[in-house]
Each structure stands twice: as C-alpha cells, then as structure tokens.
Design a protein around this nucleic acid. Structure first.
Length: 269
DNA sequence: CCGTTGCCCTGCCAGC
DNA sequence: TGCTGGCAGGGCAACG
C-alpha cells in the first residue's frame, strides 16, 4: 500500500525523468483518467517536458514546463514503474507514457482504483490536503493544536488526509505502537506527554521507512520494480497473534473507523 | 465543520 | 475439488 514513504521512494526513483519529454500517451483504461476526459488527456500531454517529480501526501506529482502538473493517486495497488518502450507491457498497464528518448513510464494497477489527472497552472488541486508531516511546520505544537476538541479516535485522526497528508493504515498502526498509545483513545483525551510522543513517533517511523525504501506487504514496488525493506521491521501491522516486541502480549486485530487495526492491549494505553 | 457510512475494485485465502 | 464470503483500504460522495 503506497503511503508517504512509498510514494517518496517512487518519486526519488523517477528523478531520471526530469528534463525528458513526453511523446505518446496510451490510455489503456479510460476510467482511470479523471481529467481531462477522453483523448484530450493524451493530446495535451504530448510534447510536454517534465521539469520536476515531487510528492504531496500520497500523490506523485509531475511538474511540466507549461506550468501544468500530472498528478497520480496510486491508492491500493497502483505502481509507477520505469522501463524501455521496447520491453513488453504490463498486463495491468492503465496509462503508458512513452518518453521521446525511449524511456517508458507505466502506471499499472491491478485493482484499477488509482487515478491520474492533469491540473492547470495554479489550480489548487491539493487545497484539502493537510500538513506534510516531514515539513518544518509539523511541530509538536501544530500537532497538539489539531487534537484539541476532537473526540474522534486518535487513529482515525491520523488517517484524515485533511489534517496530516500521507499517513496510511500501516504507519498509523506503527506510530501508535511506538508511542504506546491505544488507537481507540479520543484524540483530545491524550495527555500532553502522549501527544509529544506521538508527534515524534510519526516523524521517526516515516523517516525510518523512507530510509528502508518503504513497506512491501502486498503490491508495492519502487520505480525500478524493487521491493522495500520496512516489512521486515514492522512491530504490529499484520501481526495478529504474534508476541508484542516490547512486552510479549499477543498483538490483537480490531476494527477502528472501518480499518483493520493491529495493536498491543498491554503496552498501548 | 464534524463524524459516519456506502461504494469502488480484484486477488487471495479460510472455511465448508 | 470447487465454491463462497470476507478482507485488503484510500478517496470521494452523501447524509445528518
């Protein structure tokens, strides 16, 4: 599942595309293109030069010389993978970008829930997205301010992209374990020290996951098709029945906010 | 604004 | 062996 560390790793791997020019664009499954609809998407991208490849939350963003941007949402099983135009195409390719130098960028997606869209210069496509948790603005004070008056379970708040952009189910579970906080706790009910611990745990977990090139539990691979390494050091995610690494109590799986949630009943309070 | 629910979509796997 | 139902979960729309 591509969350912040996975999309960051993909975007870094796609830096080789900077200054390259897009030739033809083949849309294999039209409904994954949000806008512009129909043939306009391919036509408007043709000839565009890529000026930067970035990440915002869980979105990959390709800046174009024209000031427009190609925005890709990978959702659950989406991939952005490099190859050569001469190689065979993925059977689940949804949009294929052929660069003029023979490089191919494929947006592949088994479950077809991912989306691509072309946004106009200055278009506020990410207005509803919250703060970047690895930016300097994500201070303990900023985080604590988000929790005030919020009765929602702390885990649901961590997953709310309008507050913090980029945390998904894996890293929400892992950060709460690291901070020793029960995922069901009402956000506003956390003590000040607990809020500080959670702030630090979020930053630490995301940075460690980036350093290990993301978590490959099902479909995730980077821009070169390589798996990440963080699945080998997960503490709770997907670990139902396994002993907690801190206290030995078996990890439980419950459902919070309609998401599977793995945690330790003993040391997460 | 806040919180909750429904829906999308396919591969995998436990259980019968 | 073959079928079925549940699960994986991010983003968006809709509702009170």
């Amino acid at each position: 599942v591509p969350e912040l560390p996975e999309v960051e790793t993909i975007a870094r791997g796609l830096q080789v595309l900077v200054h390259k020019r897009i030739g033809t664009v083949d849309v294999r499954l039209p409904r994954v293109v949000q806008t512009p609809a129909g043939a306009d998407f391919s036509r408007e991208l043709r000839g565009a030069r890529i000026s930067a490849v970035q990440r915002r939350g869980k979105y990959a963003v390709f800046r174009l010389d024209s000031g427009r941007a190609l925005v890709v949402s990978l959702r659950m099983t989406g991939r952005l993978v490099l190859s050569r135009t001469s190689e065979p195409e993925s059977p689940v390719a949804r949009v294929v970008f052929n660069l003029t130098d023979g490089t191919r960028l494929t947006f592949a997606d088994v479950r077809t829930l991912g989306r691509v869209r072309l946004v106009e210069p200055g278009e506020a496509w990410d207005d509803a997205l919250g703060i970047e948790p690895l930016s300097s603005g994500f201070t303990p004070q900023a985080f604590i301010g988000m929790l005030a008056g919020r009765t929602t379970p702390i885990k649901v708040l961590l997953l709310d992209q309008r507050r913090i952009a980029g945390i998904g189910n894996i890293y929400a579970c892992e950060a709460l374990w690291e901070a020793r906080i029960r995922p069901t706790r009402a956000a506003e009910s956390l003590t000040k020290p607990a809020m500080n611990r959670l702030h630090d745990a979020i930053v630490n977990v995301l940075n460690r996951a980036i350093a290990m090139r993301g978590t490959s539990v099902s479909d995730y691979v980077d821009a070169n098709g390589a798996e990440g390494g963080f699945q080998n050091v997960l503490m709770v995610y997907g670990k139902a029945g396994m002993p907690c690494c801190r206290c030995g109590t078996p990890i439980v799986r419950t459902v919070i906010g309609r998401r599977g949630t793995w945690w330790c009943r003993t040391c997460q309070r």
